[in-house]
Design a protein around this nucleic acid. Structure first.
Lengths: 149, 149
DNA sequence: CCATTTGTTGCGAAAATTCGCAGGAAGGAC
DNA sequence: GTCCTTCCTGCGAATTTTCGCAACAAATGG
């Protein structure tokens, strides 16, 4: 199936919001690169398509997208917020606070937890993008070795 | 309540940082109330003890504390960052995005997930304060009813 | 088409957060 | 105590993010 129609437009109209030229530009700018994108980069890309677009419009669009869940926010290592378009299936990350590597978390683990919360608390968790910080395998062994010295 | 020597000082010195009067004020300000505290509130409390303290000092201290893990940051509903002192045992929350209620998450659920991640990915998750957003029991039934009308 | 309604944008200003730097204070060594 | 060395803070300015409001544009219905 061609899947050419971007579905974020449907999500917006569904929510009673409007599909505008600016929002299209911003959305495309988020997805233009690979992976996570900073506000500055998004602004630069957007301005390339419409030099008169204002930074406040970028921020407003991003907030709308994030609230509706069509883009996800990922806190980068140094506290800056990064943005990324959300793909069909929810995906979760493990981020190593030592080397910064990101690896995907097995979906089953996350959905198990969601199911458990539902069973125990009767609470419906909406888990789009779980980010777990910690230390990866490689750094764990490296750290152990460095303590040897 | 033998609330002995606050251990955040040990954590700072351990990291080669200094225990200053300002940092003491900021740390106390974070913990002065119950639960999560906003930057503005922290600043207000700190200024009560030292009117000459600067906002940039608040931000710098909070960043240091957060990086060392002695205070935790919690994203509030509207995107604002809240701060809270980290207590001995990790604790996790469920927050309802409809009514704002926060309820504690059974520790077992979280630690199960951490164990699973370790087993499957060999990744050591450092889970101090997991916040899961969703819809609580009460709002779930209320929502169902409202769809009836 | 035209009119109406309501959400959205541009614009500038305000607020929040970070930065650079010189003076001041903590911790350590003697 | 005094002297050092670094780190921290006050200070103001720069940067980032939000806000208010009038003009504008998207969807809807006639």
């Amino acid at each position: 199936m061609p899947h050419h129609k971007p579905d974020w437009e449907a999500v917006l109209t569904e929510a009673g919001l409007r599909v505008t030229r600016q929002r299209e530009i911003v959305f495309d700018a988020v997805g233009a690169g690979e992976g996570h994108t900073s506000v500055g980069e998004i602004y630069a890309r957007a301005k390339r398509r419409d030099p008169s677009i204002r930074l406040s419009t970028i921020y407003r669009s991003l907030r709308v997208f994030a609230e509706l869940g069509v883009v996800l926010t990922v806190p980068s290592g140094d506290g800056e917020l990064l943005y990324e378009v959300r793909h069909a299936s929810p995906h979760h990350h493990l981020i190593c606070r030592l080397c910064g590597t990101q690896l995907p978390l097995a979906n089953e683990i996350a959905s198990n937890m969601v199911r458990e919360v539902q069973r125990v608390h009767g609470f419906e968790v909406e888990l789009d993008h779980l980010v777990l910080w910690g230390v990866c395998n490689a750094c764990l062994s490296a750290d152990v070795q460095s303590r040897h010295f």
